[in-house]
Design a protein around this nucleic acid. Structure first.
Ligand code: MN
Ligand code: MN
Ligand code: MN
Ligand code: MN
Lengths: 220, 220
DNA sequence: TTAGTTATTTTGATTAGTCAAAATAAACGT
DNA sequence: ACGTTTATTTTGACTAATCAAAATAACTAA
């Protein structure tokens, strides 16, 4: 069995490679895992020995098919657990990522299946993050963000790509939850500011950095 | 934070001391934790340094107030998780102990409280094991067993004190679940056999060893 | 092309948890 | 009371995961 450390390494590689093709740098992985780069190099070599990754020295690392399989299973657990915590236990959506970070390593595949059924086989977690299917299929659709979308077009918020409690609280406080309707009324590259408007409510000003973390879809 | 290894050591000390007063031997602890005795000695000395236990060299070990507090919290998590797995996820009661062994270290106190509320503040787990209260109170009532009870008296089964899947499956298959009514019709010390009868159904023969794991209460 | 900057790897050390096997202490039986 | 059995402790070694700091390779800008 993979230790929870190994599971975290593999999961973060998956998240950093946007689907699994590109090489992930040691630095990026060290940053994501909050360890020093030397630790990552050592661990990656061990993961290469166990067949979970392919290591290109001084270039980066990528998951093998087996490594990807393990990573997808952990990610599925993480996101289904978040659904459970929010939908069943009614926990704050800003707090569940931290909880799921532990639980993803503690629940069995049997519990995973039953949670999935209990929740009605959800396709996304409370933040709009897609849940890998039991067969290992992960939706990789590319969305526009409030920083890149067309101005004045009616949009639906589909996903928030920042799990930090502060950002999620900000998003919730301003009613920008996944599913909500919104449109961008103004975007100024010079000042780096974006103005968004919900159907009802006063206009909201965001930095481009913040706007880029809110994924949207044209309302069909 | 206590590691899951430390939590397991403390929890098993609590279980082996029947409430917390008696000294627990290194050997018993090693057996329960499936490690060699030398490992326990080393670990117990570390736990003494951290103030979780009091170590009497060559005699045994006992929990301090702080160690007991931690142990009760872990035990509460274990048993509430078992309730959740059986009552909500409808898992097999013979399988949940293994699951809970991992989950007891992964859920936060926040999740614990919400699970407790969701389940309606149960007092016992699916095996009849008492759940420590939030305040750390653990029911220590002493019950008779099918090996010690009065013959022919109507009884109610209250608890099964063996978490092994094989024994639990046997118990379930023979309808000896907690809450069921039963009486002992015969007990023969020489042969070591006990005959039990449910209100409806054919008589069931058990060894004294097996009968001793089924706790009962006179039907009031 | 050469010096400087940055990322990665290597080396040596540390901590938690474990085992095997030897040493020691206590208990037991005659 | 003395040798034997049993439980416990000690010692030395190992694995997984980590960091600090030095070494190295690769890129970058003049
Ligand atoms: Mn994790
Ligand atoms: Mn999420
Ligand atoms: Mn456990
Ligand atoms: Mn139980």
């Amino acid at each position: 069995m993979a230790t929870s450390t190994v599971e975290n390494y593999l999961k973060h590689m998956l998240l950093l490679s946007e689907g699994g093709e590109e090489l992930v740098s040691m630095g990026a992985l060290a940053e994501a895992l909050a360890v020093v780069p030397g630790t990552v190099t050592t661990m990656v070599k061990a993961l290469a020995d166990s067949g979970h990754v392919e290591h290109r020295p001084r270039q980066g690392v990528r998951l093998t098919a087996e490594g990807r399989r393990v990573a997808l299973n952990v990610l599925r657990k993480h996101r289904l657990v978040e659904c459970f915590l929010v939908n069943v236990l009614k926990m704050d959506w800003a707090a569940v990522d931290t909880e799921a970070e532990q639980l993803e390593h503690a629940i069995s595949d049997e519990v995973l299946d039953r949670l999935d059924a209990l929740l009605g086989h959800p396709e996304t977690d409370p933040h709009g993050d897609p849940i890998p299917s039991r067969q290992g299929k992960l939706d990789s659709q590319v969305y526009a963000t409030l920083a890149t979308c067309v101005v004045e077009k009616p949009l639906r918020i589909v996903r928030i790509t920042d799990q930090s409690a502060e950002f999620l609280q900000f998003v919730e406080h301003n009613g920008l939850l996944p599913g909500e309707s919104v449109r961008v009324t103004e975007r100024n590259l010079a000042s780096g500011l974006v103005t968004a408007k919900k159907t009802a409510g006063r206009p909201l000003v965001l930095s481009l950095a913040a706007a880029g973390k809110i994924l949207v879809q044209p309302t069909r």
